[in-house]
Structures are given as structure tokens and as C-alpha cells.
Design a protein around this nucleic acid. Structure first.
Lengths: 194, 194
DNA sequence: TTGCAGACCGAACGAGCGTCCGGTACAATT
DNA sequence: AATTGTACCGGACGCTCGTTCGGTCTGCAA
């Protein structure tokens, strides 16, 4: 109930994140979390009302970390294109460093957990992205398209790019990554820069 | 075992697709498919080895439909940009007409079902997209980037765009759609066309 | 020192899950 | 007429799931 994150509570969240990546949403029963985290079943239900709520709180937990990563090294004085590329790379790097996240994130986004949530409940992460994009439009650097659309497109491609690279199904090195970023920028920028 | 699709088999697939959209991967037990489809449990296990295989076969089933839709109205003699936009719109329209598909598709892609499959087993749909993109590169219309990367980016944005629109969380009409297509094209095209 | 609150434990429970299997119906083959 | 094969049925089985609950331990307030 309390909002302070005890050691056990974090262990539960991190373990669940990892297990969901490996076994999917289905296929990660509480019993598995118990075994892997070393936390008793009762403790889990002490911290979280039920399994659904655990997953929803995990989403918030992950989302906040993403937001922190996205903001890193952002210099408001720098040219917008530079800031834009920095944000995108931050996102990409975050997923690379936390490979459990993107899979869970996309599973959640595509699940009824998310689908059935009210529009208003857009999270802090997306809100930040939206306002960042809006800034770019107002300053004339981005195409004057609904910022929410651009924002979703932006964060989606960051995840997709990570997945392309991590899958191993398609080989992608540093060169390919630079190319992808260029594609995104050329698509959204008001004027071609290359 | 046989590959011919009987009425019941299709009923099972379509019902499962719909239920997964509504309740997610987890949260759609066989018993629910039984109730909604009117097919007996025994029959399901007559047609599909087990639940996992049912879901995998559903993915193939859906994928083939997508491929057919993607190809529609493609005129090899037409200018590449036109063909490209047509393909993208076909994809988008397919998802709009079959709203159960994209959610299931993304859930599957992000699940261990797909993650754990060998690289070689890329399906007919992606193979088609890849070769289409490769053609565009060879003819000098697209940036010379790994065609598999462009292909994934292309099909991902089609799904994302549909979701943006269908969610209702972000309003997107015909104008916005045209803008999105333009963004994609500007991103991947060798030279800016607008 | 007593008492209460909160973090934590894990055996136990009932519901519901995936799956099996003995059976029917009907068409094609012999 | 007998046999075989295939599509289909639905009750039953065992197992595992999410969740509960009676309990212990620790630290702080009274």
C-alpha cells in the first residue's frame, strides 16, 4: 500500500519483468515469480492487490525509468535536430541496456490491460515525448503534424530498431542504426538536411 | 492433420483471433473458444495438437491473409512510389477491415512464440515485403539500406498507424493518415519528392 | 514490558485450466 | 454388408493457477 519501494518489492518487479520477457504474459504464474525472486507468495500479495495490479504497476515502474533515460544529456540550448537525435539514441540505448523492457512494454501496450484504459491516463513518458515534439513543431523544425502521432511513431521506431538489432534475425550494426535514425529524421523533418 | 480448412477449423481460428484481441493471449482459455465458437473441445484437439500449436497456426493463417491483401492492385508497370504507397495503404486498410488482426499480430511478435523461432522461419508475408523493398533499392528509388530493416519499419508503421487511429486515444482522420504516409515515404525515399 | 503495526512467510484451497478418451455419425472403400 | 477413416462430441481427470490466511519476526510507541 505504501509507495516506498522496499527491497522485496523491487525484487518482485524486476523478477516479473525478466520472466515476462522469457515466458510472456501468460506463462509467468506467480509461483514462478516466487521461485525466482525468493520472495514468498504472501509477500507479493502484501505489496500488490493481485496479479493484474502487479503488472500494471510494473508498467509504471518501467515507464518512469524510460522517462529518466530519455531526458539524459538533453541540452535545451542545443540545435533541435541534435536534441532529437539524442533523445532517440537515449531511447535506443535504454532498451539495449534493459533488454527486458521493450518486450514487456510492447506486450503490455498490445494487451487489454492497456487497451481498456481510459484515454486520459496517458503516462508521464508519453507526455514528455509529446511536449518535446510539440516544441519542434512550434520552432519549425518538424512537419506540422499532430504531435501525438509523431511521438508514437518516434518511440515505436526506437523499440522496433532495438528489436531488429537484438533479434539476431536481421543483422544490424552501428551503420544500420545511423541509417535508421536518418530515415526517421528525414521523415519527420520539415526540410531535408542531408 | 490434413491441411484442408473445414468449416469448424476456420470457426476455431476466427473465434480464437477475436478472443485474443479482447482478452489477450493469457485470458483466452480453450473453454472460452469452445463456448464462443460452438465447437467441442475434442474437435479443437482433433485439428490442433495443442493450444500452442493452435496459436502458431493462427499466426500463419493471419499472415497469409495479410499477404493477399498487400498484393492487391499492385501494377508492376506503375511508378515505384505509387506502388509503395499502394502497398502501405493496402496494409493499413487490411488492418482497418480486420481489427482483430493487428493486436493479435503484435502480441504474437512480442511473445516467446515468435522470439524463440529460428531466423530461417521468416514467413511468406515478410518475404514478400523484403523483395518488394529490395526492388525499390535496386531501381534507385529507396535509400540503399538493408531491405529487411526497411521492410520491418514499413510494416510496423502500418500497424502502428492503424492502432493510433483505432485506439481513439489519439484522433487521426484521413488528413493525418496522408501525412503519416508522407513521413514514411520522405524517410525511406532516396530524394525528397514534395 | 507490553502492545501494536507492518514486512514477510508458506501450506492449503477451490476454481478452472489444458488435455484425453470413449463414443457417435456418416461417407468412402472393399 | 462389413470395414475403415475422418470429423466431431462432451464428460472427466489431474494439475496448476491465483489467492487466502494464520502465523512469526522486528522495531517503535506507549
Amino acid at each position: 500500500m505504501t509507495d516506498n519501494f522496499t527491497e522485496k518489492k523491487i525484487a518482485i518487479l524486476e523478477t516479473t519483468l525478466e520472466l515476462i520477457k522469457e515466458n510472456g504474459f501468460h506463462g509467468t504464474p506467480i509461483s514462478m515469480v516466487v521461485k525466482k525472486s525468493g520472495v514468498a507468495a504472501g509477500t507479493i500479495y502484501h505489496h500488490f492487490e493481485n496479479k493484474d495490479r502487479l503488472i500494471c504497476e510494473l508498467f509504471s515502474y518501467v515507464t518512469e525509468k524510460m522517462l529518466a533515460a530519455a531526458k539524459e544529456g538533453d541540452d535545451e540550448a542545443a540545435p533541435y535536430e541534435e536534441r532529437f537525435l539524442n533523445l532517440w539514441k537515449n531511447l535506443y540505448n535504454f532498451h539495449t541496456k534493459n533488454p527486458n523492457v521493450p518486450l514487456f512494454f510492447d506486450q503490455y501496450i498490445n494487451s487489454p490491460y492497456f487497451e481498456k484504459k481510459p484515454k486520459e491516463e496517458i503516462n508521464c513518458f508519453h507526455r514528455y515525448i509529446f511536449s518535446f515534439i510539440r516544441e519542434g513543431i512550434n520552432q519549425g523544425h518538424l512537419k506540422p503534424v499532430n504531435p501525438e502521432i509523431l511521438g508514437v511513431l518516434l518511440s515505436t521506431t526506437a523499440i522496433t530498431s532495438f528489436k531488429i538489432q537484438s533479434h539476431g534475425k536481421i543483422k544490424a550494426g552501428a551503420t544500420e542504426l545511423e541509417q535508421i535514425i536518418q530515415i526517421i529524421w528525414d521523415g519527420v523533418a520539415r526540410e531535408k538536411t542531408s
